[in-house]
């Protein structure tokens, strides 16, 4: 579990540095696979059969459909890259590190001596780093990636706290994420068509 936690945090840290969209999607794919492995491990540890179903779904949706859709849209956005982020690579790297520190501090403070300390801290960090990504990146695709990172963090939180949520709730979450990403991908495509760019700062023009 510890190795998985470290790898997940590592993907998040790397995500805060990349500016190439294609690379970012690849890292996201790797992150989702890590989450799947975590899910499988939780299933192995607890012996709950439905964890395996959840793992299969994770692979299908987070490592399959979503990256597929993102790769497709990235192919259309050949020229786009995160050229001018609000927080530069180094700054956002430092900010992510600080968020991880904060997450650990938070967990230690609120739940001292909890068993899955690292997993909890990692999941909180993932959520916060995801939010940071959405906040500091201008490219629509990078913001989608931030959203999925947040979602992965939440999923990990569910895994580490309760050893798996009921299947119905997990199904609902998967459907939500899927729909959200599909809608976002479509919107990104429309953005490209309407504004010739997927830089979301053009959306400022919408304000009257």
């Amino acid at each position: 579990m510890n190795l998985l936690t470290v790898l997940l945090l590592f993907t998040a840290m790397v995500l805060s540095r990349v500016s190439n969209l294609r690379t970012a999607v690849k890292i996201l794919l790797f992150q989702s696979i890590m989450v799947t492995v975590a899910c499988l491990q939780a299933g192995w540890n607890t012996g709950e059969a439905h964890m395996y179903i959840a793992a299969v779904l994770t692979v299908l949706i987070k490592a399959g459909l979503i990256p597929f859709a993102l790769f497709r849209v990235v192919k259309i956005l050949r020229r786009e890259r995160e050229a001018n982020p609000i927080l530069g690579p180094t700054n956002s790297f430092v900010a992510s590190a600080m968020l991880i520190v904060m997450a650990y501090w938070l967990i230690d403070r609120q739940l001292p001596g909890v068993l899955s300390r690292d997993a909890l801290a990692a999941s909180v960090s993932l959520v916060l780093i995801g939010l940071l990504l959405i906040m500091t990146r201008r490219q629509a695709v990078m913001q989608i990636i931030g959203l999925i990172t947040m979602e992965n963090g939440l999923y990990l939180l569910g895994l580490s706290v309760t050893m798996g949520l009921p299947l119905v709730i997990e199904l609902g979450i998967f459907l939500d994420v899927l729909v959200a990403v599909v809608v976002l991908v479509i919107l990104t495509y429309r953005l490209k068509l309407s504004f010739m760019t997927t830089d979301t700062s053009v959306l400022k023009k919408l304000k009257g």
Binding site: L131, I134, Q143, T200
Partner: peptide, 19 residues
């Protein structure tokens, strides 16, 4: 201000503060 990033920033700031 109409900036997407700024709005997310508000959310982030509030989240961190609440935590």
């Amino acid at each position: 201000a109409g900036s997407l990033q700024l709005y997310i920033g508000y959310i982030m700031a509030v989240t961190v503060l609440v935590l």
